[in-house]
Computed example of a mutant assay.
Amino acid sequence: MLHHYRMFADYNRWANQRLYDACATLSDAEFRADKGAFFGSLHRTLNHILVGDRAWMKRLTGTGPAPRALDEILFDAFAELRAAREAEDARIIDWLGALDDDALSALVEYTPITSPTPVIQRRDRVLAHVFNHQTHHRGQAHAILTALGKPSLLLDLVYFQRTDGAQWG
């Protein structure tokens, strides 16, 4: 399973790069336009994905910033948000690279941002959510891009495996 999660970390880095490349072509007004997605705009959706990753990495590693709200705007400027996304993707990849298979069954205790009740979960179950969460909200970001009249992105895992991620195929 560790190999599987490392693949997902690399895939998420790749997909995030493609998504941010597409967002870089937008005007600031387009980037901030509310298009009816769960978090409204690309600006808010991309901030939310980073909020989620930072919250989970804080829980998993005990280090890094801990966001206070799921809709927190961590970075207002696109360039700063992109740089933080790239750094977080590298952090996730590096952290997974240092784990061994036994580490996946370790228990993680955390308190959700939305509830004061502590939760205990296996690390591998948490990681499944982390990667699914990114994919879910990247899909919303993709829908916003197409609503803005931009070309559809190829973000499928299998496309990654057949191209840049051939080592995972």
Score class of each variant (00 low, 15 high):
Trp14Gly: 00
Ala15Glu: 08
Gln17Met: 02
Gln17Asn: 10
Thr25Lys: 11
Thr25Cys: 08
Ala29Trp: 04
Arg32Pro: 03
Ala33Glu: 10
Gly36Gln: 09
Ala37Thr: 05
Phe39Leu: 06
Phe39Asp: 05
Thr45Val: 01
His48Cys: 14
Leu50Pro: 05
Val51Gln: 03
Val51Phe: 01
Val51Leu: 06
Asp53Gln: 12
Asp53Gly: 12
Asp53Cys: 03
Ala55Pro: 00
Ala55Phe: 14
Met57Gln: 11
Leu60Phe: 05
Thr61Pro: 02
Thr63Lys: 08
Leu70Met: 15
Leu74Gln: 07
Leu74Asp: 06
Ala77Thr: 10
Phe78Cys: 07
Ala79Val: 13
Ala79Arg: 07
Arg85Thr: 13
Ala87Thr: 14
Glu88Pro: 00
Ile92Trp: 03
Asp94His: 12
Asp94Lys: 07
Asp100Met: 09
Asp102Leu: 05
Leu104Ala: 02
Glu109Trp: 06
Glu109Val: 13
Tyr110Phe: 13
Ile113Tyr: 12
Thr114Tyr: 09
Ser115Trp: 11
Ile120Pro: 02
Val126Arg: 04
His129Phe: 04
Asn132Lys: 03
Gln134Asn: 15
Arg138Leu: 05
Ile144Tyr: 04
Leu145Ala: 08
Leu148Gly: 09
Leu153Lys: 03
Leu153Met: 08
Leu155Tyr: 03
Asp156Thr: 04
Leu157Trp: 08
Leu157Met: 13
Thr163Ile: 12
Gly165Val: 00
Ala166Cys: 02
Ala166Tyr: 11
